[in-house]
Computed example of a mutant assay.
Amino acid sequence: MADGSNTPMNRRNILKTAGVAGIASIAGCLGGDDEDNGGPFYPHTIWGMYGSWEEAYVQGGEYYAEDHGFDFENNNSRGEEEEQISHIQNFAQQDADGILVGPVSETAPANQVEQAVSQDIPVIAANSDIDTPDLTMSVYIGNEPACEELGEEIVTYLESDGEAEGTVVNLQGDLGMAIGTEREQGFRNAVDEHDEIEILEISADFNREPAQEGLYSVLQSVDGEVDAIFAANGEMAAGAAGALDTYGMEPGEVFMACMDGSPTVVDLFDSEWLQRAFTQPTQYYLPIAMHYLEVARTEGEDALPDVGDEIDTDDLEITGEEHMGVDIWEGQDWAPATVQEQHDHPWFQTSGRLLTPDNYDESSNWGVIFGQDD
């Protein structure tokens, strides 16, 4: 593995000028001033930029890298598997000290991860997983169990005399992406065993407009007879609120739950359109991953947590400077974490939080922190 003291500037110059196939795809970077900090080079490829969640996720990485002298840059795969594959190949060619991957899918980048690791470049996945035992580690909450908990909240709402029944609209994310399939599976785990619950599916690909248009059409077709809505992210929940409002319904008339804790979700709680949400420790994913890339680089992979370990703030504390006028690291909402085995590699499973009308506006929630200037 390359010494991180001098190489990032060389890599950066190559990245800007080389004609290597696929380099052009990196032009879609988000955020940061692309300044070389002179430290170890930890580039990141993200599945796509869809809204405030991804922006806060990337900002967390940018801030942590800035605070700790790491050379970080974000590259947008735009939901394209081949583009993400190209990113990882390019990172390895530039001799990155470690690679961060927010996977487009669980399987597509596996070969490139294996090749990078064979070159002694550790690779950590964030927000979801990659199906290869060679992955150094993954860091995420687990979309499936989180959405199963949301589905159970919907089931509880629909229960009468011990039996759940009613009509639920399922606003699906992009099922071609790992996070889309995981969230769908979690919701299905909770509701599929209840024969009296009718599921109406709308494919909205995590976007607000198709969610709003699709739900409005459904409301027209069923004369408004909808009891609950599950949305795989906050943008689709906002679209659902728009459709309900346009149709003439009042906030709270339909029970709605979504996977997200964004500023949009905070607004939906404020206006009482939303009753449940599940928030992730969004700004911590990339810092945790970078911390462990640095551990692997400086101490070796034997120093990484083992499967079965429980990690708390006594073991790891993500720290840094103030950003946006506040200490964004104050909450340490990722803790406690457990290290499990997934696809024969360690999975650093963080904590998360079910949001209700009683706790959604707490100052440690990332949607409150990153929505303060909205």
Rank of each mutant, 00 (worst) to 15 (best):
N170I: 00
E159G: 14
T181W: 10
Y247H: 08
A231F: 06
G166A: 01
A257P: 08
G173Y: 13
A240H: 03
V168Y: 12
I197Y: 11
D260Y: 08
G173C: 05
I202W: 04
G242D: 07
E184K: 15
E193D: 15
E253N: 03
A178M: 03
S271I: 13
A178E: 07
T167V: 10
M177R: 15
V266D: 04
G252Q: 14
M177Y: 10
M177S: 13
C258P: 01
A241E: 12
F187K: 04
M256R: 01
L171A: 05
A238R: 08
A211T: 04
E184H: 13
A277D: 03
A238F: 13
L175G: 03
S217N: 15
A164L: 02
V169G: 11
G214V: 05
A231S: 11
G261Y: 01
V266C: 04
A190E: 12
A228S: 05
P263Y: 02
E272H: 15
G234W: 10
Y216I: 15
F278K: 14
A243G: 03
A257H: 12
E193W: 05
A243D: 01
G180F: 12
D192K: 11
M256C: 02
T246Y: 02
D267I: 08
M259H: 15
A231L: 02
P263H: 07
A238G: 04
E165P: 11
E198M: 05
D192I: 00
T167Y: 01
T181G: 09
L200P: 10
L215A: 04
T264P: 08
S271L: 10
D245F: 08
Q275I: 00
E201T: 14
V169P: 14
L200R: 14
L175W: 06
M249A: 01
E272I: 07
G239Y: 07
G173K: 05
E159K: 15
M249P: 06
S203I: 08
D227C: 04
E253M: 01
Q172F: 04
E213C: 07
V254F: 08
R208V: 05
P210A: 06
G180P: 02
D245H: 14
T181L: 11
M177F: 10
A228V: 00
G180T: 09
G180M: 09
L175D: 05
G166F: 07
